[in-house]
Write a protein that binds this DNA or RNA. Structure first.
Lengths: 125, 125
DNA sequence: TTTACAATCGCAACATTGTTGCATTAAATC
DNA sequence: GATTTAATGCAACAATGTTGCGATTGTAAA
């Protein structure tokens, strides 16, 4: 079994995501790290953090991949909540505690829900 | 104002998407066309078809871009319905006539909704 | 503290997806 | 058939993500 290690880069990435109120992309994280580690290393750190359930991936309206730390996940682990993707400032925000409701027909086996609403966030509206 | 033209490639792309019951990616379309036209041309055709409201873009759970012809769009133009993204066969299907319901807090201006449910489709379940 | 193992890293190379500029081709109208 | 300009092909580029491998380093045990 694998034994995760704490490295400077991993800690810094974790802090960045924790301290942000919006989801961050790989390139945004890379800019913030300012050469602390390699581009590839960031990809691997993000993969590991997702794997270890510290963060989760969010897909924005354009298909862009972002990463966020949902605080509600620390208690119960469910990612089935709404994400808001702002068309103007491109920010992606987790809207906690709002559970979308829906019905699926037939024999579909649902395992995950990705509900992204786009438009203008409070700052841009 | 621009005057759209009907070309062999455009017609073929349109047919492919119309005849498919799942959303198709650029590379899938390229494979089907089998050299009928350039890769770049396919991108431009897809952009135009979206622009002309014949097809619409769907983002799957991994952030992949796919294109589908929603038959319900021909009457009333709204894309706010559920898409099902199969984790096994990677197919993306439009679930028509099922409208998700949700509530957003505060000052968010909603203009679009992308509701993707993932899991196993009837074929893979 | 030192050692040893494996997790992590940096670097180079590659793959995929998407975009842009420009000269050429061809569809629709006359 | 001639004209107009939408559409195409090609080359070049950009962004994003992946893989292999030798070097480095965190950490648990000696």
């Amino acid at each position: 079994m694998k034994r995760p290690r704490n490295t400077a880069a991993k800690t810094e990435v974790m802090d960045l995501i924790n301290q942000s109120d919006v989801a961050l992309s790989h390139s945004e994280i890379q800019s913030s790290l300012d050469g602390l580690c390699d581009r590839v290393t960031i990809y691997r750190i993000l993969d590991r953090l997702v794997e270890e359930d510290f963060i989760h991936r969010v897909i924005d309206i354009d298909g862009g991949v972002k990463y966020a730390s949902c605080h509600s996940c620390q208690t119960s682990h469910h990612h089935n909540h709404i994400h808001f993707s702002c068309k103007k400032c491109k920010s992606v925000t987790c809207i906690e505690d709002v559970q979308p409701s829906f019905k699926l027909p037939k024999q579909y086996k649902v395992s995950e829900v990705n509900f992204t609403v786009s438009g203008l966030c409070p700052q841009c509206a």
